[in-house]
Computed example of a mutant assay.
Amino acid sequence: MVLLWVTLAGCGLKSGSPMVDDVVPGSVGRGQPLDGASLTVTSKNFSENIVLGQMIGLVFKAAGAEVLDRTNLPGSISAREAIIKGGADAMYEYTGTAWITYLGHAKPIANPLMQWEAVRDEDRKNGVTWLPQSTLNNTYALAISKKNNAEYHLRTLSDVAALAKMDPAAVTICVENEFASRDDGLPGMEKAYGMSIPASNIRKMDAGIIYTQVSKSNSCLLGEVFTTDGRIKAMNLDVLVDDKHFFPNYNAAPVVHTATFDKYPEIADLLDPVSRRLTTEVAQQLNAKVDVDGEDPHEVAKDWLIAEGFIKKG
């Protein structure tokens, strides 16, 4: 999708492109409750979140709104700030990211529902409204190629810690910059498992490259992956069990700029049915269409919404 740069009077410079899809209500959006609304959707810059952001935009469009697409913003903070400040109206966010990275809590809440409730309640002060979460849990994991694992026989992260102590040179790991510095990422994992990976053995790179490096190269024994990623199966990787349950729950839920939600409370009725259908397995399938088959995230989102009956072609 082409990214346009549009100057809006009184709003400064905003990135985005209008959604021009000819879609109409299916099981959601009947009566077009957003007729006359102008809404902006956003997302982070990885496939799953882009697909989820596109879903919100398409549902809004079918419900009658004019929609500006500002998905694919770099990192987590850009999209977060857009929601807080009103530069965007809605996106899918992850409960663990909000609780730890945005709200500053060191210890996650193990129960997924209690985690969501705590985030919902605390984030109100920031002008962010959390709608009910999905069971889609995009949490962190480490993976190894089945070929390499035939030699090392790793099953859990505790096995990795044991290998790192016995043979520090063997444990090389590819990670994203963000994971390398987050409390709920590599530093916290090393502390929780009592493992110490030499800095020279940690290689930072874009997420998409990690899967290739782990599956087809010997430059990284292990790689940071996400549990909903479709490339895990496609690239023949073994995901290691987080046997100490270190990684938080990262359930995806719609978040809405509170002033927008106060004006259009119908948004909850539009997005709740969609969230109820989003599972980890569904995410793996949709992500594989983008990251393995090379399909466009917008079309993947649209095809799924139509197949589920949420919207229809106009």
Score class of each variant (00 low, 15 high):
G36S: 14
M195D: 09
L163E: 06
S47F: 12
L286H: 09
N249V: 11
F46H: 11
N138Q: 06
K302W: 15
V24P: 02
G16V: 10
L154F: 08
I232T: 01
L278R: 01
S134A: 12
T135P: 08
M55E: 12
V225E: 08
I144D: 09
K44P: 07
K244I: 08
V255A: 15
A283D: 07
S217T: 04
N149R: 03
G314H: 14
F60T: 05
R120W: 02
I77M: 14
G294L: 10
T227P: 02
K85F: 13
A169L: 01
A118C: 08
H153W: 05
M1K: 02
G96C: 09
A37K: 12
K107A: 09
D229I: 05
D21I: 09
T279G: 14
A162E: 11
A234S: 15
E93N: 09
G104M: 06
S219H: 04
V241H: 02
D242I: 10
A253L: 12
A65T: 04
L4W: 06
V119C: 09
P297T: 07
V225R: 09
S196Y: 05
A37Y: 15
V239T: 11
C11D: 07
K312T: 13
N45I: 08
S196C: 12
G309E: 10
M91Y: 08
T260C: 06
M55N: 05
A199P: 03
I267M: 14
Y211R: 10
I210R: 03
L163M: 05
D159M: 03
L52V: 02
G86V: 02
A268H: 12
A170L: 12
V171T: 05
S196A: 13
K244S: 09
P198G: 03
S38P: 07
D121K: 09
A63P: 07
I232N: 13
M19W: 12
L73T: 02
Y193H: 03
D22F: 14
I56W: 10
A259T: 06
R120D: 05
S275N: 10
T42Q: 03
A180G: 11
H245T: 04
V175K: 06
A307T: 04
V282F: 15
D121H: 03
D293H: 14
D293G: 01
I173Y: 07
G104W: 04
L163D: 03
K147A: 13
G96V: 13
D269F: 10
D121L: 07
A162S: 05
I50L: 10
V59E: 00
A307H: 12
L237G: 00
G57P: 10
E266Y: 12
F247T: 04
D229Y: 12
Y94K: 00
N138R: 01
L186Q: 05
F310R: 06
R120F: 04
R276P: 07
V282P: 12
L286T: 09
A170Q: 02
I84V: 11
C11F: 13
G64I: 08
L3K: 01
N287G: 14
S43L: 10
E81T: 13
M189W: 08
S200C: 01
I84N: 04
H245D: 07
A88E: 00
G223L: 04
V23Q: 04
A63S: 06
N137Y: 06
T228E: 11
V67S: 02
N218R: 11
K165Q: 06
G64A: 08
G31V: 15
K125I: 15
R120G: 06
K313C: 10
W304Q: 13
